[in-house]
Write a protein that binds this DNA or RNA. Structure first.
Lengths: 344, 344
DNA sequence: TTGAAAGCGCTAACAA
DNA sequence: TTGTTAGCGCTTTCAA
């Protein structure tokens, strides 16, 4: 491993000059010197030492990608198809932008801040972290941060977030379900915070705008713990008569439910209509083809990196809060109550 | 951000002492000093600077996790459920072991070596990299490396790999298929190298051991490019009469095929039996329940980190090459040709 | 039991 | 246009 100093000695110039040439600061370097330096760098297959660089500049070109830590193994952040798609996109874009990606999961603000400081991380991308923690992190560090799917309302501090048109898209999808003759529609999720709350709101608004009665009775909470999920589905199964359509806040649960019904001889959409959200790998590969709201996680990942890099380059952002658009994927799991068909 | 030196000044000891206490080298430090140091460290919320540490020791506690780079976005390494599960497990275990995870994808040996050197990475975990490149990397660096699913046969150099009983499990599964009365069984995959070749071998051996004729005619190549995959499936559809069972080298393709058949009115397993491999999130969530070979990616990830950490601690490994066991998941997609049933 | 000093590789301020 | 020097924060050797 050659060092800058060694190369400088070899060609009889100063380390400063070598460093300058390496970093393209060649305005004040003679053409001849430039070529000499380029040559040694190449001949010796020079590889920069980032730790030394980081120490000297207090900036590492590392971007910390922080995911929410989940105790439950099957909910291990990366396993969720939505998260893994984003992680993949982040890796690609971070690398292409000339940064390095440190992946870390945590549910603890202190740990996240510590990681940031320990590695002199240049920026942070926070994924699936609770709004409250996001806010707390934002307050405690000056580092560039981009959030994904994080909304905090109760504060004046500006923050950069890449989100989705959650409310609008569930609103639109609910309208579609209604247009197929449904009025008894349930909304199902495993929580009522963050994006899931937004999605509930869109759903709720659509019913309201159609003067369809909607109360907390329409909300069904699913348990995210795998073993307990079946109990939730069993309960759902027994209430099935109350509804003609079920709007799940994620494909994952939609499919779990479809399978649960299938195993009990209940057919989708003949006996009950089902809608999901995400159009993830699961949603895209099931029969009957799932009617769902498509979001593009890669797009979110790309935008997050783009925003972060802009901040790091001190460029002005055209907008702080991006809402990526979603798309209704009308397929085969909603029955048309007027004519009995379900295929588009 | 306090530094060791600052803290040393505050309590009137040397940086050396502070550093020693921080790292538990307290054999030769008085109890009183230890307590003093512990106190300042706590009071000042000291956070170590890893770049400085790395520079001084030439070791960073970073573990580079390298995945194969895929041009095609939908095949983006992390999106594959198998890979994302492993990545999740790796993140957890690396963090728990007190290391940091740098995630990087590449299909270029030079780049991987460069990353390693740039960050003074302590160790490497290579995932899905071609054997040839693995070998080349192994030769060019002294760093600790653990491979996942990488086999190179033609060389004497010892290497550490975490693999699966690919051959044995396809052998067993093929025996099971045969036991259900099938003799016309195809094997399908998108390549014939690495694990897929191993799986083919197991399949082949089982047929041979039953004196069932098996030639290259039994092998059907699937195209991995999403747009072209359908063409492969269309071809398959037309050859369907030649076989009674299809053994796919991965759940992903098994499910793509099942859906393709479904859309053409062909029922699994009534019209054709299907078997997958992986039991991934897709395989686990489809109806009819997929008969497949279950491998546990988390286990692979955990073992890989365990092996790597052992190497880094200079511990002797009990074995270099681990073959994690797989499990046959006999479910509902293979028809019993003797009595016509298919459910277990 | 403790401390002084040198050095890891690089960058930046300043001088020449 | 180029070079000297100091310093980033930490560890390690050796001396006290």
């Amino acid at each position: 491993m050659v060092t800058i100093k060694e190369m400088a000695d070899k060609i009889g110039v100063s380390p400063t000059t070598v460093s300058n040439v390496i970093h393209g600061k060649t305005k004040e370097v003679s053409q001849q010197t430039i070529e000499m330096v380029m040559q040694v760098v190449k001949d010796n297959n020079y590889i920069p030492n980032m730790s030394a660089r980081t120490l000297a500049q207090n900036s590492s070109r590392i971007i910390g990608v922080i995911m929410k830590y989940h105790q439950i193994e099957e909910k291990n952040a990366v396993q969720d198809p939505f998260h893994s798609e984003i992680i993949g996109a982040l890796e690609t874009k971070i690398r292409e932008a000339g940064y390095y990606m440190m992946l870390y999961s945590s549910d603890n603000v202190e740990d996240i801040l510590k990681l940031t400081a320990t590695w002199s991380v240049d920026g942070l991308i926070l994924l699936g972290i609770h709004a409250h923690d996001c806010q707390s992190i934002k307050k405690q560090t000056e580092k560039a941060i981009v959030f994904i799917d994080c909304y905090f309302y109760d504060d004046g501090i500006p923050y950069v977030n890449v989100g989705l048109e959650d409310m609008k898209s569930t609103y639109d999808m609910t309208n579609y379900i209604i247009s197929q003759g449904h009025t008894k529609i349930a909304f199902l999720s495993d929580n009522r915070i963050g994006v899931d709350e937004e999605r509930w709101k869109g759903y709720y608004q659509a019913l309201k705008d159609h003067n369809i009665n909607c109360s907390e009775e329409n909300y069904i909470k699913l348990d995210s713990v795998p073993e307990v999920l079946n109990a939730s589905l069993e309960k759902l199964y027994h209430r099935i008569g109350e509804f003609t359509a079920l709007f799940f806040a994620s494909d994952f649960y939609a499919i779990k439910a479809i399978n649960y019904f299938y195993d009990r001889g209940l057919k989708v959409p003949d006996d009950i209509s089902v809608v999901g959200f995400d159009d993830n790998i699961l949603g895209r590969n099931i029969r009957p083809r799932l009617t769902t709201v498509r979001q593009n996680p890669s797009e979110k990942g790309e935008l997050a990196v783009k925003q972060l890099v802009s901040i790091l380059n001190n460029e002005k952002l055209d907008r702080n809060n991006i809402r990526v658009s979603a798309k209704l994927m009308i397929r085969d799991t909603v029955k048309n109550l007027y004519n009995g068909t379900s295929t588009v």
